[in-house]
Amino acid sequence: MENAPVFRARGLVKRYSMGDAVVDALRGVDLEVGAGEVVAVAGPSGSGKSTLLHLLGTLDEPDAGSLEVAGTAVAAMDERARTLFRRLRLGFVFQTFNLLPVLSAEENVELPLWLAGVGGRERRARAREALAEVGLGGRVGHRPDQLSGGERQRVAIARALVHRPLAVLADEPTGNLDSETAVAVMDLLTALNRSSGTAFVVCTHDPALIARAPRRVFLRDGRVVADERGAAA
């Protein structure tokens, strides 16, 4: 299964019904993401970027279509299996950072390792290493409220990568950052992708970021309208 794509989506449909109104958030999305790929998912607001990311992240279930993650059909996985899959094979980065406020930077980064059952000593060493990689080696003991937005997002990135997942899913990771910090964070992701071989799927509005991505998937009204590779035109 090692050669299977990280994600293989076929005809993904997601529908939300609010009372009588039905919203088709995804209307049949096909997408394949290979190991170590970096994909920017772009599109106007409401085009279904977050919805797609939630499905890829096994956080939600499609109404139709099929999804395989690392060669395994998500539909065949139960709640426990999906939890384990996320725990061991995925990393998440959120627009609002979502760090645990009572934990230090280092402890936040240790969390995935702790969930994976890694012992204390190794956990600390790897968390420090991950923080050093994102340039926060000097901030290990700081709590989130003692860090700037960009620093928090870098802690979150370290947290998403520390357990060496197959893929990191990031929803508007730079949405709460100023443009300079946003570019720095995006460059960091690209650099980490090269060093770790982890695939990245990043949803974003930001044209500057989209332009930097080696592969760009455009969504509109729940459909893929373009899938470009190589340097942006």
């Binding site: 992240g57 956080l59 709640e79 426990r80 939890t83 384990l84 899959f85 996320r86 725990r87 061991l88 995925l90 998440f92 959120f94 609002t96 979502n98 645990l100 969390l111 995935p112 969930l115 994976a116 947290r159």
Partner: peptide, 13 residues
Amino acid sequence: REFGTLRALGTSI
């Protein structure tokens, strides 16, 4: 939201 984050990171119910 924090509990949602924990669950997304693979914390079990």
